[in-house]
Every structure is written in C-alpha cells, then in structure tokens.
Design a protein around this nucleic acid. Structure first.
Lengths: 249, 249
DNA sequence: TTGCTTTCCTGACGCCGCGCCACAAAATGA
DNA sequence: TCATTTTGTGGCGCGGCGTCAGGAAAGCAA
C-alpha cells in the first residue's frame, strides 16, 4: 500500500511535469505548436505514456486552463474578504482583474482556451465540471458582494436585472476589453492608447450609473483603486508564487 | 481582352463559390472540420485549383470573416445616419448590434476568426489590411457620433478618455457579453437568464453614467430601442439579404 | 487547320501529427 | 522463483496540408 502510494505519487508528479512542459509551448506557439510527440520527446518518455495521463491534446490544454482559472479564483477570494462597504470590495475585485491581466498574462491567455468550441467538445465530462465549478465559484464571490450591497441598501437593482446579471456586465467590460486589447489588430491606431485606464473609467461610470453607494467621483475612484492595489498586491504576488510553486513541483 | 475578362470573371466567380462551400462547413464544424480536400471534392475541382485561389486554409477563413465584418459595417453605417440627437444615434448602433447577433448569428461567429492568433499570423498582408480598414471604419462611425455629442454639448468626456476610448467601453460590453453568451458553459446555471436584456441595461446605465444627454430613464430607453428596432429592421434585413445575394451569386 | 505558347488544372506525393495497440518491461505478490 | 498485473513503448494507420511535375485547354499566329 505504501508502495502503491509511492507509485501513484510518481504518476501525479509526472502529470504535473507534462503540464509544466506543455505550458510554455502552448503559450509561445499556440495549439498547433503543441504536439504530443514534442511533449513526449522533451519529457524523454514515449508518446503512449503521455496518453496514459491525458486522453488527448485538448485535455492537456484544459488542464492548464483550469490551473489558471484557479489562480483567478484565489485572487478573487482574497479580494472579496477585505473590510469595507460592498462598493469597495467590488473595486478590490477590479484590482484583482487588473493584477491578473497585467502580471499573470500567461494565465489570462491560457484561461481563454476553455472558450474554444473545438477543445470544449473533445474534453471530458470531468474537466468540464471542474471548469463550470470554478466559474460558478467566481460568480458566487462577486454576486455575493452585489447581494450584500442590496441587503445594506447601498444598491437597488433595476426590476429585470438579477445580481448575477449585474456581475455579467462588469465581467463583460473586463473580459471584452482585455480580449480586444490582446487580439485587436493595432488598437492604438484606432485611437485607443490606454485601455487599462479606459476599463477603470468604464467600471467606475457603470457603478455610478447604478447609483451604487457610496457615490464616488472618478478621481476619488482612481485614488481608491491605487491604494487597494498597493494594499493587496503583496498578497496577490504571494498567491501567484504559491501557484507557481505547486505547478513546478 | 474580352476573352481574358470572361476568364477572370470565371475565376472570381469560383473564388466566391469556394467561400460559399466553405462557409457552412466552417460554421458547423469549425476550423478542424474545414479541410481543403473536402472543399475541393464538394466543388468537383482538384485541390490544386483551390490553392490557386487561396494560399492556405487560413485565408479562406479570413475571407469569410471579412464578408461578415463588411455586413456589420454596412449595418453600422445605416444606423448612424438616422435623424436625432447623438444619443439616439448611439442607441441605433446598439440596435444594429442586437440585430447582428440575433439575426446574423453565423456572421457574428465568422467575424470572430480574425481574433485567432494562429490564423492571423498565417494570413497575408492584404487580408490583414482589409480587416484593419474595416475595423477602422466601424470605429470612425461610432467615434463620429461621440464627437457630435461633444460638439453639441450633449456629452463631456472625462479628462483622460478619448472619444475612441469611450467607444471602446461600449464595444467591450457588447462584444464581451456576446462572446460570454456564446461560449460560457451554461450561462443560465450561473444565474444569467436574459443576457440580451442585461446588455441593454448596461449600455443605458453607462450612457447615463457619462451623463450623456438627453438623460433617459431605463424604461424610456427600452421604449426607444424597441421603436428604433422596428424602424430600422426592414432596412437591416435588406442589407443582410443583399449581402447574401452577393455571396451566393 | 496546324503547330506553338501560355495559361490553367490535376492528383499523387512528401511530410507531419494524432491516437491506437500489440508487445515489452517492470512491479507486485504468492 | 514464477505468475499476474500494471505500466511503458514506439511503430503504424489514417487523414490533412501544401507542393509540383506533368497534362489539358485556351489563345494565337500562320
């Protein structure tokens, strides 16, 4: 039994090793660039062995995406438990988003693979559930803050909008902006020179638009954001490094 | 010379035919499902002939994407020239977005291929320029409305936000929401049951947040949107069918 | 019509990568 | 020590991309 456990740990370790090898390839050269033969060669194992760990290439990609989603979730959790009114906690989530895109860029890119139709269709029930669960948890964190705001009368929702649908709006702004920033052919030539700044402004404006108390002028909002970032960033880095450790172990 | 022209027209016609054949395959089965052999077989031409028209699969995909982007651009142009205050014209663009996603769903999906790294990297300068130009025109249309609003004192922009960066916000909301709607594993289970409604609310709230005159309560906004849709939809359909004609000819 | 040139079309071929599977090696256990 | 199970191997079939030598057709001149 002890022997078996050792063996199993070896296998788990190798699974992690596969991901460690695949990760930079996927990031640098995309889905096409990542090949099973290449991973096998680099690991100095046979291809069949890789297939003992992952039934296909898509599962490797999703496994990497899950790691990245988990990192985001942990950043969200950390941000959501700070002290202060709901609006401030909402802003802390914004600061987590900023951190994630700016300092965990690879993770941000990896995370996107779950939105690829072809990959999703070929993946296992198990991976799909992991992803749905992680997405659900993230939603629960943010929606929880919205509900707090409603309960404490800091916010009143329009009739036909659920708390989750409010979250959806901020999700869309952040996600949409970032994808556009990454993939739009030459955003600057369209006149968009500081997308990060624009995201902040739009989020602030939307919060104000919903009359989410305490009302905050834009300049004040930026001050608060900066101080949140300053307060939380060390802990963000800690989480990121922790994940890196786990990944490289 | 006349003879040459006939030949050239034949070739152009075949180019269009290739796209016509490739389109449903790409939509139904994605990039993997689309194969040059398959297109060739279905056209009853040899594979080499297809390669006389397009240097690789990626170019076919981008050509399809360009067609779809052009349709969007024409919808935008149509919407932008209605009478009324800038805010109403902005809303008309929103109605065009709604129409595009709801009734030109295939085009919306095709359009996304330009954001695929692998495809972009393999494509020709020429296609890339077509895409950039189309994106630039769309931006110019919307930013033009924003500038009108500023000129007529209906809107004052924050200090650090350019008109294009304001557009960026609405772009992100619409684009982000729609991508999330299409690709998020089971949005309803996250509590998002009516994303289209949510998009409208968020856009209205953002416009109000920027204090874009005339101020419009949400109920009023929905009324106006509905009447815009009713007014413009026949013309949207006309444009869509026109494009279909061109594509199938 | 004939013969020459150019333009266009063809499909077999080389190459690569996925995923399978029959076999080999190693671990386990009696 | 040998039988059984578990784990690892790499060659193979398949299918898709993009090429290219050669063949067919069209243009053109006499």
């Amino acid at each position: 039994m002890v022997e078996l456990t050792r063996k199993q740990r070896e296998i788990e370790k190798r699974t992690a090793e596969i991901l460690r090898v695949a990760r930079p390839i996927l990031i640098a050269e995309g889905f096409q660039g990542l090949s099973m033969d290449r991973v096998a060669a680099q690991m100095e194992y046979a291809k069949g062995t890789i297939y003992n760990h992952f039934p296909n290439k898509e599962e490797i990609v999703l496994a990497l995406a899950v790691e990245s989603m988990e990192l985001r979730r942990s950043l969200f959790e950390l941000s959501s438990i700070i002290d202060g009114p709901a609006r401030l906690r909402m802003m802390a989530l914004g600061s987590a988003c900023e951190f994630f895109t700016q300092h965990c860029t690879d993770d941000f890119v990896l995370e996107q693979w779950v939105r690829n139709q072809g990959i999703w269709d070929k993946s296992s029930e198990k991976s799909q559930n992991l992803i749905r669960e992680c997405e659900g948890r993230c939603m629960a964190i943010v929606a929880g803050i919205v509900c707090d705001a409603i309960d404490s009368n800091e916010l009143t929702l329009p009739d036909t909008l659920s708390p989750e649908e409010l979250v959806f709006g901020f999700w869309a702004i952040n996600y949409g902006s970032q994808i556009l920033t990454f993939t739009s052919p030459s955003l600057p030539s369209l006149g968009i020179n500081n997308p990060a700044n624009a995201i902040r402004i739009h989020c602030c404006t939307l919060l104000n638009g919903f009359d989410w108390q305490p009302y905050m002028a834009q300049s004040r909002y930026f001050q608060e954001m900066d101080s949140l970032i300053e307060r939380l960033q060390p802990r963000y880095w800690a989480l990121k490094n922790e994940q890196k450790q786990r990944t490289n172990a």
